[in-house]
Design a binder for these strands. Structure first.
Length: 504
RNA sequence: GGUCCGUUCGUCUAACGGUUAGGACGCCAGGUUUUCAUCCUGGUAAUAGGGGUUCGAUUCCCCUACGGACUACCA
């Protein structure tokens, strides 16, 4: 059987948004599931829209996500180069072939010509004014101009484009793996430009030529391409090439209102739409990324995979390998999905709290050092064990852990008025005495010992605990008291209790 | 406007033409944690509307409504 080959072919016009990442992911999963190859091709045929840094961003983003490609920009492969601008010389001959076979033609119309054509048609009441079987014979192209004039114009260096000659009366059938048969009448299609006057192919030509040359077997792309799929099918037919299978993915929609999620949504919606932070090279506007916001790549990918695809079972937590095993195109839904930032958080909390203490400790280490506080890994591991289930995003780790590194600078007034009594200082002193005599502060030993002591001293458990919390944390917040003391150690605990006694 | 695609709880979704329409997130309540969070248990909530076909329709067909994509010498 023929090897499965798929590609992700973004254009470097800016950062990849989560919809693009999902498209890449589904391509990747499909390839791996079928022991095939996944390619990264950069479609940079529009010089005007080129954005510096975008290509690097795309590569970095895929890498962060753990989506590895077998061939493509940056790593090369048997069909190098994988950047369309570097394949520029390839495309003209294919356009020429269609020209010679009467399946395409030269067009010399200026933008003004095109505008007036549309105006004329609109005035006549034509519903879809376009360059097609009705209007093409009233334009300046090689179908109407005498052959010698065409030749002369080209010789003169007149600017021209090459347009595809769409048949007037054909049913074009697109077989889509997700949508089934989509039938479009050729009269609804326009004579799309295949080759631009700047010497570059358009998407339509370059895409078909490269997919063919790169032996792509399955084209998995966003639904926004469905309307041009009939043109692509026709082009494969014109070239007499075997067309790949198509799968048009439903779009990711904005969680508020309507419309597809777009790069321009940036941070407007209160959550990142990009995998990594992006700083616009022109405006210097910063758009946040999932990585910088504190999401784990595994959680991000897991969340994205389930947006538009489901395994048909109740399983929701998938590693990349499990996704590869479970993935299939026919369980991809047909309708667009609104992205839910809350669910993304839930996934991240799940992944974060399932990490080993040592991994949490390393994440925490970075943040602690970033605050200019020196620490050591054994201490961090102990802290990690206490806080990991309390954090949703990576930065929450510091929020939860700061009490282990910084003494309270103030005390929550509400808590204070609630717990403070005239005899509180004596009570705290007795606790200090008790702690001073403890030899083993490990949680297993110390926690029951502390409780025993409180009982035996006839003290009120809630009263003591809440006061201790005020002393140790400064507010009603944080892990269990015994755990905090166990990690903080004898000296720091006593010092904090004394602080409360003097300041209160 | 035209072409094409779509429509199950608020959201992501499941359901050979036969289910009390299931799960997850969120939300609400209770429990655990003598704090907060986590966690556990329970609850809330949906087949867009109208016609067919059928013994039987979330499922098949048609119409309507609504949503979306596309409609460039952009991808």
């Amino acid at each position: 059987m023929k090897e499965i080959r798929v590609r992700f072919a973004p254009s470097p016009t800016g950062p990849l948004h989560i919809g693009g990442v999902r498209t890449a992911l589904y391509n990747y999963l499909f390839a791996k599931k079928n022991n095939g190859k996944f390619l990264l091709r950069i479609e940079d045929t529009d010089q005007n829209r080129y954005v510096p840094g975008a290509e690097k961003y795309i590569i970095d983003a895929l890498k962060w996500c753990g989506i590895e490609y077998d061939e493509g920009v940056g790593i090369g492969g048997p069909h190098s180069p994988y950047r369309q601008s570097e394949r520029k010389h390839l495309y003209f001959e294919y356009a020429e072939q269609l020209l010679n076979e009467g399946k395409a033609y030269y067009a010399f119309d200026t933008p003004e010509d095109l505008d007036s054509m549309r105006e004329r048609l609109t005035a006549k009441g034509v519903a879809t004014p376009q360059y097609d079987y009705l209007s093409r014979y009233e334009m300046k192209n090689s179908l109407v101009l005498p052959a010698d004039e065409v030749e002369q114009r080209i010789k003169n260096g007149d600017s021209y484009v090459i347009r595809c000659l769409i048949p007037a009366d054909r049913e074009i059938i697109v077989n889509d793996l997700i949508r089934g048969e989509v039938i479009v009448h050729s009269s609804k299609l326009d004579d799309k430009v295949l080759f631009k006057s700047d010497g570059m192919p358009t998407y339509h030509l370059a895409n078909i030529v490269d997919d063919h040359l790169m032996e792509i077997t399955h084209v998995i792309r966003g639904e926004e391409w469905l309307p041009s799929a009939p043109l692509h099918v026709l082009l494969y037919e014109y070239f007499n090439w075997q067309a790949p299978e198509f799968a048009h993915l439903p779009l990711l929609l904005k969680p508020d209102g309507n419309g597809k999620l777009s790069k321009r949504d940036g941070d407007r919606l209160g959550f990142p739409v990009f995998p990594l932070r992006w700083i616009d090279p022109k405006s210097h506007e910063v758009s946040s990324g999932y990585r910088e916001s504190g999401y784990l790549p595994d959680a991000f990918i897991n969340m994205l995979a389930l947006l538009g695809w489901n395994p048909g079972t109740a399983q929701e937590i998938f590693s990349m390998d499990e996704l590869i095993q479970a993935f299939s195109i026919d369980r991809v839904g047909k309708h667009g999905s609104k992205f839910d930032p809350e669910k993304a958080k839930w996934f991240n909390h799940h992944y974060l709290s399932s990490l080993r203490d040592i991994d949490i400790a390393r994440l925490l280490e970075e943040q602690v050092l970033g605050k200019g506080i020196s620490t050591e890994i054994n201490y961090l591991v102990k802290v990690a064990a206490l806080i990991k289930e309390r954090a949703t995003l990576i930065p929450d780790l510091w929020e939860q852990a700061s009490l282990f590194f910084i003494d309270p600078v103030s005390y929550d007034e509400k808590v204070k008025t609630k717990v403070w009594r005239p005899d509180t200082p004596q009570m705290l002193q007795s606790i200090i005495d008790f702690i001073s005599f403890q030899e083993d502060l490990s949680l297993e030993v110390f926690e029951p010992a502390l409780k025993d002591f409180i009982h035996q001293s006839g003290l009120n458990m809630g009263q003591v605990m809440n006061t201790l919390r005020l002393a140790l944390v400064g507010s009603a917040f944080g892990p269990g008291i015994a755990g905090i003391i166990s990690v903080l150690g004898k000296e720091r605990t006593i010092e904090r209790i004394r602080n409360l006694m003097t300041k209160a």
